[in-house]
Design a protein around this nucleic acid. Structure first.
Length: 917
RNA sequence: GGGUGCUUAGCUCAGCGGUAGAGCGCUGCCCUUACAAGGCAGAAGUCGCAGGUUCGACCCCUGCAGCACCCACCA
């Protein structure tokens, strides 16, 4: 069967994934005798869609999984999806909003039904997209819901582990409940953790306000004048002489008239502002600490919706409105001393972007200190290793300064906290309501309404996905997993917490390696964002998309209509013809090629196009090989004589080198090096040199030589396909099916074929040297042809000195279009163009364009003279000769000699041309 | 205020104490029966700046500049 002239990714990809999955190639089991290799997928949001970051990360994971599977490991890629509490709830609430409803209109039960429905309906999207990418995940593993999507963090099994962990931590005193100041998102109406708050610098204002006392007054500086309603003191530094006399006295709170004390606290920086600080313990983290130290009361002046409350004249006003009213009133009363522009840091909710408010509420916390210590030690001891290693410093820094983790969220979508209260407010933490009731002695109980932070369940994934709290064999075999592949943005959210929780509950680290992948940006290094229009959908890169379709999908559902024109402009400029279909393999190869240890990855469509071309190159190379080997003797019969040329031995040797490079690349998570080694081997060596030489060998070689060439062609190609399979699974499978039988390789899929390992015994230094020289001669000949403007098709004869090898002769005929290679002791005295290549001197037997040749020679001579001057200067330096390693000095001498020999040949030729011309 | 990373060809990026590299782009010539998504040849970089170490620095050290990001309670 013959292959199409160019490869069609769509046709190939649709064929293979379903077959692989149905055949069960992705499965792994704890009962396998093979050594385990396990990766936990960072579970994507169940209702989400695949973006470039996912596609990148998953490509690398799949490459690792396929690589190890082929190497004989029991490769288990544990799949799953995350319920993503806040994100998912927001989406569904937005849907309700369009119907004019709120979640409270529905009530908790109905609302949750609605979220589950949305989850069922959209949950397949992202796993379907992952399949398009070729992700060979173990979909059936931990698949409690029977959806072939792995676990879901809220499925029965995972939920059980969450409850168990919560109860145990509570019983150990590591979870506690308390009224604390927490970051509050007034739009979502929930607490968020420190990590979910993004502090941004903004242009704002700072005001100075006078607080009058008896016979004196103090001026405080503030960026939030409305909070003075909740002030309970004015603080000064204990050693500030300006204010020492007033400490212990009282000032009156402007607008309110409440008397508040002047206190001394070292927290105050006397050098900043006026040196007086208003203290609002109920609405500021620092002031809270001050309040605690001084036993000050808490005056709450904001509702959970961030409106003023507390019996002030401003009650009911929204906080920013209240600010303006307070300022106006202060101004009216002459208490506003100054107003200046000011750069300030404003905390925003990572989810809604709204300004968060420190709010005094009852919340659940995890005590982190004792959990953090072992997690630090595990990394310090090298039980967990970061790639690139500098990320360990980030990890350490956070864990060393860790704060208690607020885990309760005032949401409905999530794991409801397993705590019940009796009518007296006593709390009973239990696995079930029954158990709680027993503990409460049968009292009537009410369950805590809050749910857990999504990251709480995520932190348990390394063991909960393996069946914990049962003592399963999976836990023994697949924990710790081999490597975690994830982004640096969730080192705190997820990585550190997994290490802490897994160590605490299993005594094992969750994973041995952490590979921190780069963040995907656009080609110009800009963050991808929908409002810029520079996002790329991995599926569009795979399938292609027309300009109108791209415009339509990029501008649909925009939050701000005014962005539309800008986005359209961006897209028309950057994707004037839409996006061609590159196919999953090209996309994957691009990701791998760009995956160096840099922290950003600028995704360039042109790179993707280049690697699509690479796939096409591979396709056509296979086509050529099949055309020349199918139905012919490929040397499978061991009794038939096989003759191997230096070129045949060389390509096998080069393959070993490539295999070695690939192995090193994978071992160090240098996917860019893996991709480069494969690319270079297939394109630069196999296609550009070996295939061309093979044509010659097949055309002119004897029976045994042809057999040897065919055998080498198919065998090397077959191995190269296996070598490339982890990066480009679809095309390699398609081609392998055709090529493998000719190479004598058996098996129903390349996926399970053994991965090629470098075999030192197949290295052939002699062949490599011979071919290197042959290439040099060919290059020199090609250069002569090109410089002398010989027509590409024209065959010309060459003279050559020295004793060219058979490899050189073959290559000259195949690649330099030499009609004849005449070996001579000395080049004839002729004006014909001359070049030097290693020990050889080469002369093209053509009528010369004297001027062009003189110019060419002069250029070449100048280059040689430059090299010679540099080498001589180096060798003339006594210090260099004495102190540099002998090998380096010898190498320098050899270079000099080679340059001089070449020069000695070219200079007389130039003289001769000068004389004759 | 701490901390991390980056600065190499037009663009995107590798690199290494001993001859500056790749992909894309660019120039010229070729529709040579595997591939024009291709072939061949070629141009192109004082490796951010200034010092230092060294026989030798793009690489190691110090300082500086610029860019990016992370953390942090200065009202």
């Amino acid at each position: 069967m013959t292959l199409a002239k160019s490869f069609d990714p769509k046709a190939i990809e649709s064929r293979w994934y379903a077959r692989w999955e149905e055949a069960g190639y992705f499965r792994a089991s704890a009962d396998s005798p093979k050594p385990p290799y396990c990766i936990q997928l960072p579970p994507p949001n169940v209702t989400g869609t695949l973006h470039m970051g996912h596609a990148f990360q998953q490509t690398l994971m799949d490459a690792l999984i396929r690589y190890h599977r082929m190497r004989g490991y029991n490769a288990n890629w544990v799949m799953g999806t995350d319920h993503a509490g806040i994100a998912t709830q927001i989406v569904v609430e937005r849907q309700l909003q369009e119907e004019g409803l709120t979640r409270r209109d529905l009530g908790r039960e109905k609302f949750l039904e609605r979220v589950w429905r949305w989850k069922q309906q959209s949950g397949a999207t992202i796993t379907r997209q992952m399949r398009r990418l070729g992700a060979s995940g173990n979909w059936e593993y931990a698949d409690a819901e029977g959806l072939k999507a792995g676990y879901f963090t809220m499925d029965a099994r995972m939920s059980r582990a969450v409850i168990e962990v919560f109860v145990r931590l509570y019983e150990e005193g590591l979870i506690y409940r308390g009224k604390r100041l927490v970051n509050w998102d007034p739009v979502l109406g929930t607490a968020v953790s420190d990590l979910e708050v993004d502090t941004e610098e903004e242009d704002g204002r700072i005001w100075e306000i006078r607080y009058p006392g008896e016979g004196f007054s103090l001026v405080v500086a503030t960026t939030r004048p409305e909070t003075l309603l909740g002030d309970v003191a004015v603080a000064v530094h204990p050693e500030d002489p300006r204010y020492a006399a007033f400490v212990g006295r009282t000032v009156r709170l402007p607008l309110i008239g409440r008397p508040i004390p002047v206190i001394a606290d070292p927290y105050v920086d006397p050098g900043f502002g006026t040196g007086c600080v208003k203290v609002t313990p109920a609405h500021d983290f620092n002031d809270y600490a001050v309040g605690v130290r001084h036993g000050l009361p808490l005056v709450q002046i904001l509702t959970l919706e961030a409106r003023i409350t507390g019996g002030t004249p401003y009650d009911g006003l929204e906080r920013f409105e209240a600010r303006e009213r307070v300022l106006a009133d202060l101004r009216a009363q002459g208490l506003l001393v100054s107003e200046r522009p000011y750069r300030l840091r404003v905390p925003h909710s990572g989810r809604t972007g709204v300004v968060v408010e420190p709010m005094l509420t009852d919340q659940w916390f995890v005590r982190m200190e004792s959990l953090a210590r072992p997690a630090l030690e595990a990394v310090a001891r090298g039980e967990v290793t970061f790639f690139p290693e500098h990320w360990a410093a980030t990890y350490h820094h956070w864990l060393e300064n860790i704060q208690d983790w607020c885990i309760s969220r005032q949401l409905w979508w999530g794991h409801q906290i397993p705590a019940w209260y009796d009518e007296h407010g006593n709390v009973y933490v239990a696995r079930t309501e029954e158990e709680a009731r027993r503990k409460a002695g049968g009292a009537a109980l009410r369950r805590d309404e809050d749910v857990l932070d999504t990251w709480f369940s995520s932190a348990l994934v390394p063991f909960s996905s393996l069946g914990w709290p049962e003592k399963t064999k999976d836990l023994e075999v697949f924990l710790p997993s081999s490597v975690l592949v994830t982004g640096f943005d969730i080192i705190f959210f997820w990585v550190a917490r997994m290490v802490m929780m897994t160590l605490h509950f299993t005594g094992k680290v969750p994973f041995r390696h952490v590979y921190i992948n780069a963040i995907v940006r656009d080609a110009e290094g800009q963050k991808m964002s929908k409002s810029k229009g520079n996002t790329l959908d991995p599926l569009d890169l795979i399938d292609g998309i027309t300009l109108p379709e791209l415009l339509a999908k990029s501008t649909v559902g925009l939050l701000r209509a005014e962005h539309k024109a800008r986005i359209e402009r961006y897209i028309r400029e950057h994707f004037p013809h839409g996006i061609p279909a590159f196919g999953a393999d090209a996309l994957r190869f691009t990701f791998a090629a760009l995956a160096s240890f840099a922290r950003t990855l600028n995704f360039d469509l042109r790179r993707c196009e280049g690697y699509r071309n690479f796939c096409n190159k591979l396709w056509n190379a296979a086509r050529f090989v099949l055309m020349n080997t199918e139905g012919r003797d490929c040397g499978l019969d061991p009794s038939a004589p096989v003759a191997l040329s230096s070129w045949d031995r060389w390509i096998v040797s080069a393959l070993q080198r490539a295999e070695q490079e690939v192995a090193e690349g994978f071992a160090g998570y240098r996917f860019d090096n893996v991709a480069a080694a494969i690319y270079r081997f297939i394109w630069d060596e196999y296609c550009d040199w070996y295939l061309e030489v093979a044509k010659q060998q097949l055309a002119t070689g004897g029976e045994a030589a042809q057999r040897g060439t065919r055998r080498t062609l198919v065998r090397v190609l077959e191995a190269a396909l296996r070598l490339a399979h982890p990066l480009i699974p679809f095309i390699t499978e398609e081609l392998w099916q055709h090529v493998a039988p000719l190479a004598g390789a058996a098996g129903e899929t390349i996926m399970l074929a053994p991965y090629p390992e470098a075999d030192p015994s197949k290295r052939d230094e002699a062949a490599e040297r011979e071919v290197a020289l042959a290439k040099e001669v060919v290059n020199a000949a090609r250069n002569l042809r090109s410089e002398m403007k010989v027509a590409p098709k024209e065959r010309i004869a060459f003279w050559i000195t020295g004793s060219p090898s058979a490899a050189t002769a073959t290559a000259m005929a195949a690649l330099a279009r030499a009609s004849e290679l005449q070996v001579v002791a000395e080049l004839p005295a002729s004006d014909s163009p001359v070049a030097a290549a290693g020990p050889h001197r080469l002369m093209a037997r053509i009528a010369v364009d004297t001027r062009a040749e003189r110019e060419r020679l002069a250029r070449e001579i100048a280059r040689l003279e430059g090299e010679i001057a540099r080498a001589r200067a180096k060798l003339a330096n006594a210090a260099f000769v004495e102190r540099a390693p002998a090998q380096v000095v010898a190498q320098e001498r050899a270079r000099l000699a080679a340059f001089e020999a070449s020069l000695a040949q070219l200079r007389p030729q130039l003289d001769r041309l000068a004389a004759s011309g």
